[in-house]
Design a protein around this nucleic acid. Sequence first.
DNA 1: ATGGTCAAGACGACA
DNA 2: TCTTGACCAT
Length: 718
Amino acid sequence: MDASISLLHSLNKSQQEAVSIPQGHCLVLAGAGSGKTRVLTHRVAWLVKNQNISPSTFLVVTFTNKAAGEMQKRIESLLNQSTKFLWIGTFHSLAYRFLRIHYQEAKLPKEFQILDSEDQLRLIRQTLKNHNLVDETKWPPRKIQWFINHHKDKGEYPQHIPDDGNPDIQKMVQIYLEYQNYCERNGLVDFTELLLRSYKLWQYYPELLRHYQTRFTHIFVDEFQDTNAIQYEWLRLLIGRQGTLFAVGDDDQAIYGWRGARVENIQQLTLDFPSIHTIRLEQNYRSTSTILAAANAVISCNKARLGKNLWTEGKKGIPIQIYSGSNEQEEAHFCLIQILNWRNQGGSYADIALLYRTNAQSRIFEDILFQHKIPYRIHGGLRFFERAEIKNILAYLRLFIQRESDPVFERIINMPPRGIGAQTLSQIREYAQDQTISLWQATTQLLAQKAFTPRSTQALNNFCQFIQDIEIVFQSSSLPQFTEYVLKKSGLVTHYEKDKSERGQARLDNLKELIQAIAQFQPEDQNLERLSAFLAYTTLGEADPQQAQQTNTYVQLMTLHAAKGLEFPLVFIVGMEEGLFPSAQSFSSSNKLEEERRLCYVGMTRAKSQLYLTYVNCRRLYGSENYPEPSRFITEIPNQLTQELGMHQIQTSQPASSKEILLKNIQLRKGQRVYHPKFGEGILLAIIGERETAEVEVKFYSFGIKRLALIYAKLRPI
DNA sequence: ATGGTCAAGACGACA
DNA sequence: TCTTGACCAT
């Protein structure tokens, strides 16, 4: 009993209520920073310690791998015991786990392979080609990919899509069908299919479902607002009559609508489980009252909300700092200065997060932090296991355990180049198609028929021999040793060594790191089991070696999406510009725009004590210059909560160029005080270009006006 | 069959 | 600006 008291005593009233609620369904509507994860982990611990419930009846679902890891750690320390037996993970990794156990019922080969979105796109391109739909403007593969995933998210296979007579849709359905058939034939499962399959598994095998319903009687779901239709149904099936659900979520933090997530699932819960208890957590423990007020002001511009009133007893803190630079160099430089300041005042680099809307924005910050030797860590972007060199070596390993995998075969048959060209390859493809066999089988059969030119025969023989021969090495060595062997003997190392550039070196380093990652990967009983589990983990994005590294002393760079669930004393949100954030694609509908706003809310509420919002007047995009307006989200923050960084800030930052112009015989310089008949007094920030009319396009900062204006001429110096 | 050059297209976030 | 795929010369 002591234990349970200590579990509760650090919690506030509503938190205690949620943690110690009698058994039954429970929905915790928790605002940002209100201790959502705390409540969930304490609930788990409370059930074990106070109710003597075995953790083996728990299933904990999180939304990202990062969150799963974090959660596991926290539960472990609360329970003071290892939680290896606890089923915890993302929807995708749990689905994978079920499919792996019941691969036969799911009608999958034992060694089915997970397609990441790049693989998927590649496959769709291929399918389009087979249909002679080569015109990528009419048939953008991305659009097809979205079409397929969108339907799968709703649980729809091609045959479920109603035919409304639209020929374009018909065509897409056809492509979808062919893509799906190809996946079926080759044991390929894309991300959405993981969920759909495991859902169908339970639908078709009620006894299997009953088994798991009896086993998992306590289901916990984090970030419930981000569940999609399939995930919701999946949960509903699993919970059944006996199970209890403990869900936490916040409709204001729903940011995965583009992936099919449905906030409505939160309300749906109260309909499907009428006995559910709803508990609200509205006290924020994270941010200063200023930050919280600003975030509340922004989010209150959204119409579609359940509504909640987040409050804090926290200190007022300092105003939100708003900075504008003339270009992204200045923006990055500004952040650098603030980071150094923080450090000089005794802060740690690990306190700092730099958040952006798109991964492409990270580069310049990476550059400048690197130049100034500031330790930083980038999350996301091109993830480790998505790099070409890593995928290549993994493809060898995959082909080794699953000869039948055609995409993998195609990937490495001539990588590194070994004299097998398009001719030979299409010969193999054709034969495989005719005989409805895999490329690997086709190759061996054609080799037996001596169907190739001498040169190809030689190369193919070597290749096939190699894949077969490594079996012996596999038997007699550890997994890392084996990988290293394959790496060398496949010629990949030699191939990358030829690239003397920095990039070649980086690739070799990555490959070394992969060996490390394999070595550190949780050993399981059988070597083959372990290898195949490892390959799955690489695709599911868990166990990223570069992210696993200590993050203690690093400035964290990540997208706003990746920042969900994290908190930092000092947060920068950069690129606060119309078209970038909110993104241009979101202008088309208020739903999308509201999702952007929620994303902004998520970003702002990551900050504990200081928040910087920055934007620029000129941004390079696709290599050409754009002149965006400041983000509407900035203007949605009440003036009294913000502080616009003064002129001296702008002037002390590095000027991009010291261009001067001559306008009707008047000399204008950057940084000069100028007068505009409409906007009044200001400072000239950037000279953008001259127009034929002798008018000059400039940016200037005018006092008293909150935002910068793009002015055409009519400026005069003061 | 290979490796190099060139033009077109990408940049929306994640599993 | 950077990456990718098509095409061309070797």
